[in-house]
Design a protein around this nucleic acid. Sequence first.
DNA 1: TGCCTGATCGGCT
DNA 2: GCCGATCAGGCAC
Length: 192
Amino acid sequence: MKILDYTFYKRSTVLAAKGLLGKLLFHKTKEGMASGIIIETEAYLGENDPASHAARKKTPRNSAMFEYPGISYVYFIYGNHYCFNVVAHNGGAGAVLIRALEPYEGIELMRKRRAKNNLKELANGPGKLTQALKIEREHNKLSLIESNLRIYDLGIKIKEEEILKTSRIGIKAGKELPYRFFLKDNPYVSKK
DNA sequence: TGCCTGATCGGCT
DNA sequence: GCCGATCAGGCAC
């Protein structure tokens, strides 16, 4: 089991979004560790993607998307929730939104944080998985290679035909772009 | 300085 | 299926 290195993130955002399926998102805190297998992602590109925070100018909020690949981009949304993204691009800007996890380790801790018992309800949505893994504002712009927030390669091989693609969820502009990717028949996807 | 809106969730009908 | 919670960033004035 090895940590993904910079070369994984320094390539097209769409390829990284597909490549992250089957990888393990891991977070260690004082409470303990928790992790889950990434089973649903969305790609958000730079200036030519109207749905992306990076479609406009660099600001304090979206600045992570313009920085070097392999760091986190965490933002607060709807007054209630955090969303976790992985910065991945080949120059310019871009990030991959992690939309759902299959719980792997630290399941009791996730149950406690989520106040839910059902395994399927622990991390089957972008706001849910940040709550389950305790990813918050302070975890913005962390190195996913050198911090306690990491992504591992478990050696799971995903075949092209196991990846389904649709338009992205919850956006207004850019609905025609097929940048949402998830694993076929996986019971932990956020929406059908 | 003020207003508007969002890459969501969960509870209620 | 619909709607309210809740707040900070971004932009208009």
